[in-house]
């Protein structure tokens, strides 16, 4: 590795990392409680769910696709898991095990179905997942009869509230997912194939690989991550509700895009997505701490999303110059 390539790989995440550091410094200066252990622990808890969904979403966006259904699939997976946990009178260990499996499998299936339909009929994922958004939401409402499901086993509820050295367990799960995501994307054939397809699907096909297979798997991964996020949601709030997760897809997409992943595919990273989710979380927490009103907070969040992406374009230009 020469100096140039090292600088380049550092630069890749530098823009977004710099933005995050800037935000943290800014909030730390404006409010003395921002950098306390308990507040940081809170932020980590608050970004976990979005991080897991966004990690799955990264695979799909790297392919040049999108998954709009994650919010609804989250609700459906949560409702399915919650039903399994509460309605079959299983002993609590079994109930939890089957509920977790049920949620993840449910999410994976939704993703796989979306992906398969996209590939079979060559429809853009925007449309297919828009359909899935409605199907999953409707099914969730049907399954739960529009009610909030509660009364999970005590051990399940207690686990969700646990922290290890002030780090919430659901954040640890999120970090593990991100690390797995980084390894898969960087070190495996499958990961390299995702980038290759995102850059030029035709050339992948001509080189004798079948892009369809890889793409369907990516949607299944995204769905599976969403199913896991549903379990995290239940751990955090100890309820499942069929109307939860409305708009979560936009938060996840925002995290991925702030993290420097191109919506056209082929360019981006899992680490960037993680940093993007951090920015969203820090922003939400910090703006409230400094005491801004609801509407101002929404405006500033929007501005920061755009600024982060603008910053990123400078980063890519610099990178391009270095490559020359």
């Amino acid at each position: 590795m020469n100096t140039k390539s090292i600088t380049r790989s550092l630069l890749k995440e530098a823009g977004i990392g710099l933005a995050l550091v800037l935000l943290v410094v800014l909030f730390a200066l404006s409010h003395d409680k921002f950098l306390t252990v308990s507040n940081i622990s809170n932020i980590l808890q608050q970004i976990s769910i979005n991080t897991i969904i966004a990690a799955g979403m990264t695979f799909v966006i790297l392919l040049g696709g999108i998954d709009l259904s994650v919010g609804s699939v989250l609700a459906l997976s949560a409702v399915v898991g919650a039903k399994i946990m509460t309605e079959f009178g299983l002993p609590s260990d079994m109930a939890i095990l089957f509920a977790v499996l049920g949620s993840v499998i449910c999410g994976t299936l939704c993703g796989a179905i979306s992906g398969a339909i996209c590939e079979k009929w060559r429809i853009h994922s925007f449309i297919v997942t828009l359909g899935m958004l409605n199907i999953a939401r409707g099914t969730a409402l049907e399954v739960a009869d529009a009610r909030t499901i509660f009364g999970f086993p005590m051990s399940f509820n207690a686990f969700g509230a646990q922290t290890i050295f002030h780090i919430p367990v659901i954040f640890i799960v999120a970090v593990v997912i991100v690390i797995i995501g980084i390894v898969v994307l960087k070190k495996t054939v499958y990961g390299r194939m995702i980038y290759a397809i995102g850059n030029n699907e035709e050339s992948v096909r001509l080189s004798g690989h079948n892009p369809k297979f890889y793409k369907i798997i990516a949607f299944a991964i995204c769905g599976g991550a969403t199913g896991l996020a549903a379990v995290m949601y239940m751990l955090r709030l100890n309820i499942a509700n069929p109307i939860l997760g409305v708009g979560f897809e936009l938060n996840a997409i925002a995290a991925v895009v702030i993290g420097g992943t191109s919506l056209f595919g082929g360019k981006g990273s899992m680490l960037g997505t993680f940093l993007g989710a951090c920015i969203m979380g820090v922003l939400g927490n910090g703006l409230l701490l400094i005491g801004l009103g609801d509407f101002t907070r929404q405006i500033i969040t929007g501005v920061v999303i755009i600024l982060a992406v603008i910053l990123d374009t400078y980063r890519s230009r610099l990178e391009a110059k270095l490559t020359e």
């Binding site: 409010h31 409680k33 306390t36 308990s38 507040n39 809170n42 808890q45 608050q46 769910i49 909030t148 949601y233 955090r236 709030l237 309820i239 509700n241 109307i243 939860l244 997760g245 409305v246 939400g284 927490n285 409230l288 701490l289 005491g291 009103g293 609801d294």
Partner: peptide
């Protein structure tokens, strides 16, 4: 001390309340 919206939503109310408790 404060009057803030959580858009009728459980998850948002959880985040909001956590942050309000910090402040």
């Amino acid at each position: 001390l404060a009057s803030r919206t959580a858009h009728w939503e459980t998850e948002e109310a959880n985040t909001l309340m956590t942050n309000l408790l910090t402040r």
